[in-house]
């Protein structure tokens, strides 16, 4: 579930243009998972239910995007989801900041991805 959530939260321009996408996603997801497993009760416990709810919502948003022929975008649904409650807002921010921390650790990779993306555009 975490892998799916992380993939949806990471910006396309940072991961899609890279050939090692799967390897990067694995590294980032492992870090997010390990961090949460190492954290204290008051982070670990609520995160369990957040993970399930977020996963279900994300699948639902994807479905809406497909049914509406991309007229309703996943990103717009996500923004509404974040505003629903601070529980979702803070939770998603936690996933994002951990994922970015792990992703940016390899700064050369980020530079390469951004320049690939620029060339593509």
């Amino acid at each position: 579930m975490i892998e799916y959530i992380v993939e949806k939260l990471l910006p396309n321009e940072l991961i899609n243009s890279n050939q090692d996408k799967e390897e990067i996603l694995f590294k980032v997801t492992s870090y997010v998972k390990n961090s949460i497993d190492t954290s204290g009760f008051f982070v670990k416990f609520p995160e369990k239910s957040l993970r399930v709810v977020t996963y279900i919502f994300f699948k639902f948003f994807m479905l809406i995007e497909i049914i509406s022929l991309k007229k309703i975008k996943f990103k717009d649904c996500l923004n509404r989801f974040l505003k629903m409650s601070s529980f979702f807002g803070d939770g998603i921010r936690l996933y994002k900041s951990l994922a970015f921390f792990a992703l940016f650790e390899d700064i050369e990779l980020i530079k390469k991805n951004i320049s690939n993306e620029k060339n593509r555009n």
């Binding site: 940072l14 900041s97 994922a99 970015f100 921390f101 792990a102 951004i114």
Partner: peptide, 19 residues
């Protein structure tokens, strides 16, 4: 780099140009 990444994640839409 990792801490910069965290900073950018706070508002990627507004800060992606800094990457």
């Amino acid at each position: 780099p990792a801490i910069f990444g965290m900073n950018l994640s706070e508002s990627w839409e507004k800060r992606s140009h800094l990457a």
